[in-house]
């Protein structure tokens, strides 16, 4: 409750029945097909799921960065703004201000022909509406890079992206996210190139942003150690749909969907000494030939006859816990 006595809007982002279809030579690819979730204020929300299931596409559509070969349906509400209806120009005003995204592939967000300092300067220019002095850029830039554990901050500011290591590029992007200080930060696999000591620091840094700036974040990660430390709730995606959603600890201790259960079993532990890793048989189906019924049926260890015919829908099975599986029919 705020001071006015009204209930404040408790979410910052609401995604409703989002669909993203790509037109390709081989036919239509339904990369995201009816995804709904919301992110609360100050919440860190995780998106996980098999490679190719539509996580990055979901994030790209929130940023409205998909190109013309795709069609977007559904609603994306950022506060009271309906982003699906926004023009490129309106979006540009949000990017780097209310919204910022750290991409999975560094070369999507870093400009290869610009030095790091110029890219950081660009962010400040956009945010503050005027260009900063060179000395200020260097000072602010160094401060940002040191926060993400980059040594030699002055030399890195003067380098081009291709002269940096994979993990340095990743951290430069995170530093740019810090400079932006958005209301909602989207991070697509932000720590894949960081060794465990640096990853540890970055995880603490991201948690600090939530506390210090009340920043909400959407974190796409396949590293459950990172999800465990960061995420309040997570959504598990499979072939363009959310199959389970709930608090991280709920999914860890009481996963309901057979896919979620399988996923947690595949995690390698620190002490494993086996010669063979636990897997889930099979892979994601081809998005060109999706089966009727549940997309996971072919790989499911507890498949029922109905699963082959009918697509299950999300039902509530506990507090903030939703599952789309015929084993849990309302």
């Amino acid at each position: 409750m705020d001071q006015m006595g009204k209930t404040p809007m408790e979410w910052i982002l609401k995604v409703e029945d989002l669909k993203v279809y790509f037109n390709t030579l081989g036919g239509v690819v339904k990369a995201v097909d009816g995804v709904s979730f919301n992110v609360k204020k100050e919440e860190l929300f995780g998106l996980v799921g098999e490679s190719g299931c539509g996580k990055s596409t979901t994030a790209f559509s929130i940023m409205r960065l998909l190109d013309d070969t795709s069609i977007l349906y559904g609603k994306i509400l950022l506060g009271d703004k309906e982003l699906v209806k926004f023009s490129k120009r309106q979006m540009r005003r949000l990017w780097g201000n209310k919204l910022y995204m750290i991409f999975q592939d560094p070369m999507t967000s870093l400009n290869p022909v610009m030095r790091v300092k110029d890219q950081i300067a660009e962010i400040f220019r956009r945010k503050e509406g005027r260009a900063l002095k060179v000395n200020d850029i260097i000072e602010k830039g160094c401060n940002l890079l040191e926060q993400v554990e980059i040594p030699d901050s002055v030399r890195v500011l003067n380098q081009y992206p291709h002269q940096l290591s994979g993990g340095m590029k990743q951290r430069v992007m995170i530093a740019m996210g810090l400079a932006t200080n958005p209301d909602l930060l989207l991070l697509d696999e932000p720590t894949t190139a960081l060794d465990s000591t640096v990853q540890f620091k970055i995880v603490e840094l991201l948690l600090g942003l939530k506390k210090k700036y009340r920043m909400s974040q959407i974190i796409i990660t396949h590293d459950f150690g990172v999800a465990a430390k960061l995420c309040d709730r997570i959504a598990v995606m499979y072939a363009g749909k959310i199959v389970e959603q709930g608090k991280y600890v709920t999914l860890l201790h009481e996963p309901a969907h057979p896919y979620t259960k399988g996923l947690f079993k595949c995690i390698i532990t620190k002490d494993q000494e086996k010669d063979y890793l636990e897997t889930m048989k099979g892979y994601l189906p081809s998005l060109y030939e999706l089966p009727s019924g549940c997309y996971f049926a072919d790989r499911c260890p507890v498949v029922l006859p109905i699963c082959r015919n009918e697509m299950p829908v999300l039902v509530e099975v506990g507090s903030e816990h939703f599952v789309a599986c015929h084993l849990f029919r309302s």
């Binding site: 996980v48 799921g49 098999e50 490679s51 999975q104 994979g166 696999e189 894949t192 190139a193 396949h222 459950f224 399988g262 996923l263 595949c266 995690i267 390698i268 010669d275 063979y276 890793l277 636990e278 897997t279 889930m280 892979y283």
Partner: peptide, 20 residues
């Protein structure tokens, strides 16, 4: 060089078994 860094745990396990 980081050949499985972008893979989720289930695909990663399958690829690692293949490499083994």
């Amino acid at each position: 060089d980081e050949p499985v860094s972008a893979l989720d745990v289930s695909v990663q396990a399958q690829i690692l078994n293949l490499m083994k």
